[in-house]
Amino acid sequence: MLVDSHCHLDFPDFGEELDAVVARARAAGVGRMVTICTKITEFERVRAIAERYDDIYCTVGIHPHEADSQPEIDTARLVEAARHPKVVGIGETGLDYFYEHSARQAQQRSFRAHIQASRETGLPLVVHTRDADEDTVAILKDEIGQGDYPGLIHCFSSSAWLAEECLKLGLYISLSGIVTFKKAEELRETVKALPLDRILVETDSPYLAPVPHRGKRNEPAFVAHTAKVVAELKGVGMAEIEARTTENFLHLFNKVPAPAQISG
C-alpha cells in the first residue's frame, strides 16, 4: 500500500472528477490520502471531502501565503477543529519568503500558533518552507524548547542542511514529484542520505506532477512514480519503499487507522 500524505482534493482542478481521481488512486495501490487545508475559511469544504471517503483524511490550518488574507488564527480554533475524527494533522503552515504573499511577521505568528496546536493535540505539524530555511529552523528549535511536537517538512526540495536540522528535531521528510525532475540532482543526492524510517511520499496534487506526467495536472495515483524513484535512490525494492513509507506515515499520523482496522 502507498500513501499520498499531502494533496489538495478540494481545489477546483479536480471539480466533478473527484470520484474518478479517487478511484484511480485506489487502483494504483494508494490506500490513504490526506487532503490539506490551506485556508481556515474553507476548512469545512476540506473536511467534507474527508467525510465523503473512508480512505481520505484531512488537516486544518492556514498556508503561509494566506497569513495576511485569512482571519488571524489562534491555537484554540485549530485545536477545536482537530477534535473531528477525520482531522489528522495541523497545517499546512510555515514560511514562504520566495513569493511573500503575506508579510513575514504574519507568517511567523501563524506558524507559531500552528506549532502550539500541534503540541496540544499531538497531531503532526505539516510544514511548508521555501527560501526560509534559517528562520524555519530557528522557529522550530525555539518552539521545541517549549515542548515536543510531531511533524514533517512537506514537499522537501531544499538543502541537505535543512534535512539534517529537521531530522535532529525528530521531524520527518516528505518527498514529492520534484525528486523525479531532471534538474533535481542535488535533491536526489540528499535523499540518498535520508534514513528510511523518516521518509514519506506525497503528490502535492494538483501541482508538481512527477515524470512521466510532468506538465499535467497531478493526482494521488501518481505518487507511485515518486515512490519508484525514491526506491531506486535508496537501493531498495518498490515493495520495501511502499511498506516503509506507509509505516512511517501511520506512525506519524497516528490518528489514521491502518487498513485492517477499517470495517466494511
Rank of each mutant, 00 (worst) to 15 (best):
D4E: 13
S5N: 05
S5I: 03
H8G: 10
L9T: 05
L9G: 02
D10A: 09
P12R: 14
P12G: 10
V21P: 02
V22A: 10
R24L: 13
R24Q: 14
R24P: 07
R26H: 14
A28D: 11
V30N: 01
R32M: 09
I36L: 05
C37Y: 00
C37T: 07
C37F: 02
I40Y: 06
I40D: 00
T41K: 12
V46Q: 02
R47Y: 09
R47W: 07
A48M: 12
I49P: 02
A50E: 06
I56A: 00
I56C: 00
Y57E: 00
Y57D: 01
V60P: 01
V60G: 03
G61A: 06
G61V: 03
P64K: 05
H65I: 03
A67Y: 00
S69Q: 09
P71W: 11
E72P: 08
I73F: 03
D74G: 11
A76F: 11
L78D: 01
E80S: 14
A81T: 12
R83C: 15
V87R: 09
G89P: 05
G89M: 06
I90N: 04
G91H: 04
L95H: 04
Y99P: 03
E100L: 15
E100T: 15
E100M: 15
A103M: 14
R109A: 12
S110E: 09
S110L: 12
R119V: 05
E120P: 02
T121G: 02
L123Q: 00
P124W: 00
L125I: 01
H128N: 02
R130E: 06
D133R: 04
E134H: 10
T136G: 10
I139C: 06
D142T: 12
D142S: 14
Q146C: 15
L152W: 00
H154I: 05
H154P: 02
F156E: 00
A163W: 03
L167K: 05
L169Y: 04
Y172G: 02
S174Y: 07
V179I: 14
V179Q: 07
T180G: 10
K183E: 15
A184S: 15
E189Q: 15
T190Q: 15
P195D: 15
D197P: 13
R198D: 14
V201C: 08
D204F: 05
D204A: 08
D204M: 08
L208D: 02
P210I: 02
P210A: 09
P212R: 03
P212W: 04
H213K: 11
H213A: 12
R214H: 14
F222Y: 10
A224M: 07
H225P: 01
T226D: 01
T226G: 02
A227T: 08
K228F: 12
V230K: 01
K234S: 07
V236Y: 08
G237A: 08
E240K: 06
A243S: 13
R244N: 03
R244H: 05
F249S: 01
F249E: 01
H251I: 06
L252W: 01
V256D: 01
Q261D: 11
Q261Y: 06
Q261R: 08
I262F: 14
I262C: 13
G264N: 11
